[in-house]
Amino acid sequence: MQSSLFAHGPVQSQDRWALQNSQMLKIDLGGQMRDVLARKGTMVAFQGGVDFDGHLQSGGERMAATATGEELNLMRCFGAGTVYLANLAQSIHVLDLNHEGITVDGQYVLALDPTLSWNVVRVESDQGIAAVGGGYNLEIGGQGKLAIMTSGKPLVMQVTPQQEVFADADAVVAWSTSLVTRMEAQLTSQRVWSRRGGTGEGWNMSFQGQGYVLVQPSELLPPTVFQQAAQGFLANRGLGQQGGMRGNTWGA
């Protein structure tokens, strides 16, 4: 059999976390105490003895429900095998965190080392305008590896005291925790550019201080189309609210 497919064999790597390709993450669990937290529903394949535990909440730690009552969609993977993770063919990026804090939209976290510390936060303004898809965010600190996802190649914008950065709230994936964030709306241009309904018309986020903002080209679907299509689509594909689709496309 001949095919260009065979160029896509498993990547050999010494690293415990290795990108199989830009859309798939390979994690070598390799035994005790090296477990990994991964987003539920993202396992596409595994080899060897791997166990999955989705009851993180009862397992204690900080798995408290968020203010909205949402629970985190994370599961613990442990054992002695290799796990392949992917979600909706989104681009995956492995970050090595070394005590610089990063705030990530919860929908875009694919996997993280348990050595990292994290808090569930909700980003919203006093006016009740929820930023970043209205969902929960994770403030992640400490040392370890973190895998996040974006739809397509992302954009890293540098923020300096001289250079403020504005971004559409729904396109923002993550930012340095040290940044000052605010929601803004230009009075001169009402209702013009807002991407989706979820963030309030015409509002965008501004970032000030020193750090970086990670922006992605888009979510997978415009929410209106998605919502229209959602019912039939999900039913057709055997997916429901609990499916792997959740969050990533439901952002707004």
Partner: peptide, 12 residues
């Protein structure tokens, strides 16, 4: 709705 980010002074 196509703006995802900008720097500087831009109005829409």
């Amino acid at each position: 709705g196509s703006m995802i980010a900008y720097t500087g002074f831009i109005t829409f």
